[in-house]
Simulated assay, not measured.
Amino acid sequence: MNSDGILIIGGTGFMGSAIARGLQHDPACRQRPIHILARHAEPALPSNIQVHRGSMDNSDLLRSLLPGCSTIIHAASSTTPGVSAKQPTLEASQNILPTLRFIELLNECGPKQLLFFSSGGTFYGNPDSSPVSENTPFSPRSYYGAGKVAIEAFLQVYQVQTGSKVTILRPSNVYGCGQAFRPGFGVIRTMLEHVLRDTTIDIWGDGETIRDFLYIDDLVHACLALIRQGDVSGSYNIGYGVGHSLNEVIRSMETMCGRKLKVNYQPVRQVDVARIVLNNDKLSRQLNWQPQVSLDQGIALTWQSLQG
């Protein structure tokens, strides 16, 4: 069996499927077998990508796949800060425990290159300064963010005990073409859906909360650079490095779409951070990566893709 395969867990989700397509076009990676483990099939993926129906709890399937894969991308997540609010056990049962069972399976294998998608938007809470570097202390305000902190800690132990290379990716708010509409997932995609339907969106707070928005292609390029490097370990912020308020996003969207967005401002939620902008200097310095797609460009591209 070819042992140089790449396994993407959660590979039919927005980020996972975009990375799979990116691997197909990358000269250094496209000859490697690509496997996707996901609960749902994705018919739009290239035919030479092998999709395996299942979850991280399917130990028999994983035991058959892991020997043939030297690189593993963990992009699976079943919650958001709002979904698991007031329900820490939901975070534990849907994200933390499945990952721990997966780590137990990895302990049966030799060293791997493992990339884990954490969260730059919830990991740091409300930091004292901005933009935040990877050395900023973690201070999550949601059980979702706390779950990411816990998984990062367990993966650190896994790296120490096995000698595997573990790379933690802390992306900002990722959006772009190919993102399906799911209520509660992705504020830009949700806003565009309401523009399409001419319906009203609920905004928690006064719209002045600051977020760092990253177009999906820029995330894919960063991920591919880390895979090509091979021996990278540590934590990396992946963001545009510039903050925009939700009201700024709305104004940009109305300009790009030529339509008004109906907004209903609701009381702020305790799980939401007030401002988060990621410093991406570490990734830029080590891998010569820079985001290329501005917010205006990204919204325009996403809007065009939704026009059919």
Rank of each mutant, 00 (worst) to 15 (best):
P131A: 06
P131R: 01
P131E: 01
V132N: 04
S133A: 08
S133G: 05
S133D: 09
E134V: 02
E134G: 00
N135V: 10
N135C: 12
T136M: 05
T136I: 09
P137L: 00
F138H: 07
S139A: 14
P140S: 03
P140F: 02
P140L: 04
R141P: 01
R141E: 00
S142G: 06
Y143T: 08
Y143K: 03
Y144V: 01
Y144I: 02
Y144P: 03
A146V: 06
G147S: 13
G147K: 03
G147Y: 06
K148G: 00
K148H: 09
V149T: 08
A150G: 11
A150V: 10
A150R: 05
I151Y: 01
I151G: 03
E152F: 07
E152R: 03
E152P: 01
A153Y: 09
F154K: 07
Q156I: 06
V157K: 13
V157G: 00
Y158Q: 04
Y158W: 08
Y158V: 01
Q159D: 09
Q159W: 05
Q161C: 10
Q161V: 14
Q161W: 11
T162V: 12
T162F: 13
G163Q: 08
G163I: 06
S164Y: 09
V166N: 02
V166W: 01
T167D: 02
T167I: 12
I168M: 10
R170G: 02
R170Y: 02
R170H: 07
S172W: 01
N173P: 06
N173D: 08
N173R: 12
V174Y: 03
Y175K: 07
Y175P: 05
Y175S: 05
G176C: 12
C177G: 12
C177M: 12
G178W: 11
G178P: 09
G178K: 04
A180S: 13
A180I: 09
F181G: 07
F181V: 12
F181Y: 13
R182L: 15
G184N: 12
G184Y: 12
G184R: 10
F185N: 04
F185A: 01
V187G: 08
V187C: 10
V187P: 07
I188R: 03
R189L: 13
R189W: 03
R189F: 12
M191Q: 09
L192F: 07
L192R: 05
L192K: 05
E193G: 05
E193V: 04
H194M: 11
V195F: 02
L196H: 14
R197F: 15
R197C: 14
D198Y: 15
T199K: 11
T199Q: 14
T200C: 15
T200V: 14
I203L: 15
I203E: 04
I203A: 07
I203V: 15
